[in-house]
Amino acid sequence: MDMGILAQHLFNGLMLGMVYAMIAVGFSLFFGVLDVIKFSHGDVVSVGAFAALGGASAIGLLVDMPGLSLLFGLLAAIAVGGLAGVVIGGTLVLPLRNAPPVNVLLVTLMAGTILREAIRLGVPNGGNPKPFPVLLPQWQITAGSFSIGFDSVLILIAGIGIILATHLLITRTRIGLAIRAVAQDVDVARLAGIDFRRTVLGTFALGSALASVAGLMLGLYYREVNFSMGLVLGVIGFAAAVVGGLGSLLGPILGGFLFAFVQTLVTIVLPTASAYKDVVAFGVVIALIGLFPTGLIAERSSERV
């Protein structure tokens, strides 16, 4: 295979892996603090993408400054996506946290459906794919037959930066300490004076904002957003989080890149059968869960008898 195309695939795989990881981290964080799966998380990606589209377009109408548009898009994505996460978390997930897990799963799936339908029905012509404005410089970086947009490189770097920042936030700050304390033991955390509800909602805001920014990045990268883009991303993010190890931070990142790696590998090795990339990737997911039932980075789990 041509080296340029190979490099292109690899770059694309990295990009996807980063997006998956950003989504998977949210699943893992929510599971950590509440032991629940919040399945509306995938649709928060679409919400973020559309909020960014709205924010950027609004500024674009006023002034022709792509940088400012991007900034507003980013802020809109973080605000709206984070809000969606907090609202769903506060009204549906928290009150149901003692209900059977499948109820929570179903309720949040339905909340995701509401988000998706709200975009489809609420955005003008929302049922069709929407072009995403070009907000980053369009320089091309060329090396032999490999050519890549400067914007793509920027997105990748930004994504990695965000993941690193999240890691630092969780491991080095007071907020992160509260999140980890709640994840370890709710009762002890409460005794230590940590506001449980605020910490949980903060976690929802953080995870959802991450997913929203991932949505913005997808918009910038593919120059198109779609109301239903979040559904399959949610499934992949969940898969990545579980394979990596729910409740850990490194696990879902690993899982996200692994999923993208498998997809990319199939595309490279079997270019004629690239349609099978999801079949293989999900097959790998099932096999890995069979081999590592609690994820690659094992979740703390020992039940007292």
């Binding site: 799963l105 969940f238 898969a239 579980v242 729910l246 999801d278 099932i286 869960i289 609690t294």
Partner: peptide, 14 residues
């Protein structure tokens, strides 16, 4: 629990 849910979701999509 959730892990089983994922196994079945993955199977369905696959």
């Amino acid at each position: 629990g959730h892990y089983v849910a994922l196994v079945t979701i993955a199977f369905g999509v696959l």
